[in-house]
C-alpha cells in the first residue's frame, strides 16, 4: 500500500492485497459516491505489463475479449478464463505502444500473474509493475468536476474507456475514463513515488471511499465482483458475465468450455434479490414455493435501498425479476437490474 490513509481507517485483506475497507463509515462513503464524487485507493489492483513482439497475440489468446486493435488511447474490461471456462480474473486492459498493461481486480494480482505465466507459449515478457506504478480512482456523478480542478477539464469528457497519456505536476500519468458503479469514473495510473502527492491533491477536492462502498455500488449496477461471485464451480454463463466475453473471437483460453456451457442451456443463473431483515450468508438456500432451487452468492445491506440486497444463483427457469422467493425463512423479491439508477445517467458533463 503506497497511499497514506487518515487515522481510523479500517483496512482488510482482500486476496493478496491489504485495502482500505472504509475511511469513515459505509453509509457516508456510499452517499458521497452516489451523490457527489469520491477518491478510490485502487493500489490493491495489480498492474501487469505484457510486452514483446508477440504481446498482442498473447493477450488476444488469454483475454476473453477482442484486444487485437486496442490502441494506446483505449482500454477495455475483459475476463481472463482458465481452460475450463472458470473466471481467473476480470481485468482492465490498456493498449500500450509496446504491448498491453493489464490491471487486475482487487487482490487478484498474484493469481493473474501465475495464470499468465503458465500460458505464456509466445514467450512474451510479463512484468509485475506494482512496485513502481499504482492506481487512483475517481467515481461519482460529479467526478468530472474533480478531473477539471485536478488535471484538465478536457480529460473529463473523454469517451468511455478512452485513455490519455498526460502530465500532472510534471509527472507522466496514464489517465482513463472508466467506471465500476454506473457513475462517471476515471482512473489515474501514476508512478509510486508520486502517488502520495496525487492522492493528497485529490483529497483536496473529494473525500475517499473504501472497498465496501465501492463494491456495494458495483453490485447495485450488476458490475461483476469476481472475488465474491466466482466461488465454487460457477462458470461465466452462471455468473451472467457474458458481456465480458467475446464468443465471436476465433480463439481464446476457455472458449470451448464457455460455448459448451452456453449451448447446454442447463445449469443455474444469477439474479438479484432484495428483502429480509437479516443479511444471509453465501450458500444460504433459496426456496421457491417451498422447493430448494438455489443458493445465495453473497448479500449485503444496501444503503441505497435500505434493505438487504444480494445475488442468488438459481435454476435457469427461475432467474427472472419479480418473483417472490424465500431465503432463510424470509420473503425476498427478485429484481431488475440496475437495482439503483446511477445519478450520472441524468447529469451531463459540463
Amino acid at each position: 500500500m503506497t497511499l497514506t490513509h487518515p487515522e481510523g481507517t479500517v483496512h482488510g485483506q482482500v486476496g493478496d492485497a491489504t485495502v482500505p475497507l472504509r475511511f469513515t463509515d459505509l453509509s457516508t462513503e456510499y452517499g458521497v459516491l452516489r451523490d457527489r464524487a469520491v477518491a478510490l485507493d485502487l493500489s490493491g489492483h495489480t498492474l501487469v505489463e505484457i510486452s514483446g513482439p508477440a504481446a498482442v497475440d498473447f493477450a488476444q489468446r488469454v483475454l476473453a475479449r477482442d484486444v487485437e486493435y486496442l490502441t494506446s488511447e483505449r482500454c477495455m474490461m475483459s475476463l481472463v478464463l482458465d481452460d475450463d471456462g472458470r473466471v481467473v480474473d476480470q481485468v482492465l486492459a490498456f493498449g500500450r505502444e509496446d504491448g498491453l498493461l493489464l490491471e487486475s481486480s482487487v487482490g487478484a494480482g498474484t493469481r493473474l500473474i501465475e495464470h499468465l505465466r503458465a500460458h505464456n507459449d509466445e514467450g512474451v515478457e510479463i512484468v509485475d509493475r506494482s512496485a513502481d506504478l499504482t492506481v487512483i480512482g475517481l467515481e461519482g456523478p460529479y467526478a468530472w468536476g474533480v478531473v477539471g480542478r485536478l488535471i484538465d477539464g478536457e480529460l473529463a469528457s473523454l469517451p468511455f474507456e478512452a485513455v490519455s497519456d498526460t502530465v500532472w505536476n510534471d509527472v507522466e500519468i496514464v489517465f482513463a475514463r472508466t467506471g465500476f458503479t454506473g457513475e462517471y469514473g476515471y482512473q489515474m495510473i501514476v508512478p509510486v513515488e508520486s502517488a502520495a502527492d496525487l492522492w493528497r491533491a485529490t483529497l483536496e477536492h473529494v473525500t475517499p471511499s473504501g472497498q465496501e462502498a465501492l463494491e456495494l455500488a458495483m453490485l447495485e449496477v450488476r458490475q461483476p465482483i469476481p472475488r465474491l461471485e466466482t466461488a465454487g464451480d460457477a462458470d461465466v454463463i452462471e455468473i451472467g458475465a457474458n458481456w465480458l466475453v467475446d464468443v465471436t473471437k476465433d480463439e481464446f483460453v476457455g472458449k470451448e468450455a464457455v460455448l459448451a456451457a452456453f449451448e447446454s442451456r442447463q445449469g443455474r443463473r444469477t439474479v438479484g434479490f432484495s428483502g429480509g431483515d437479516v443479511v444471509p450468508e453465501p450458500g444460504a438456500r433459496v426456496l421457491a414455493g417451498g422447493e430448494d432451487v438455489g443458493e445465495v452468492v453473497f448479500a449485503v445491506r444496501s444503503v441505497g435501498l435500505g434493505a438487504t440486497l444480494g445475488l442468488a444463483r438459481v435454476e435457469a427457469g427461475l432467474a427472472a425479476a419479480g418473483l417472490e422467493l424465500t431465503v432463510e425463512g424470509a420473503g425476498v423479491t427478485t429484481l431488475t437490474s440496475p437495482y439503483i439508477v446511477p445519478k450520472s445517467w441524468s447529469i451531463p458533463i459540463i
Binding site: M77, F160, G179, G182, V221, R222, Q223, G240, N242, W243, V247, T248, F262, T270, V271, G272, A319, A320, A321, T336, S337, P338
Partner: peptide, 19 residues
C-alpha cells in the same frame, strides 16, 4: 450485431459497459 441474441443476458448493461 454479430452476437447470438441469447448470449445477451437479461441483466447486463446496454450502454457504455455491456452491449
Amino acid at each position: 450485431l454479430e452476437v447470438e441474441p441469447d448470449w445477451i443476458t437479461d441483466d447486463q448493461p446496454l450502454f457504455g459497459r455491456g452491449l
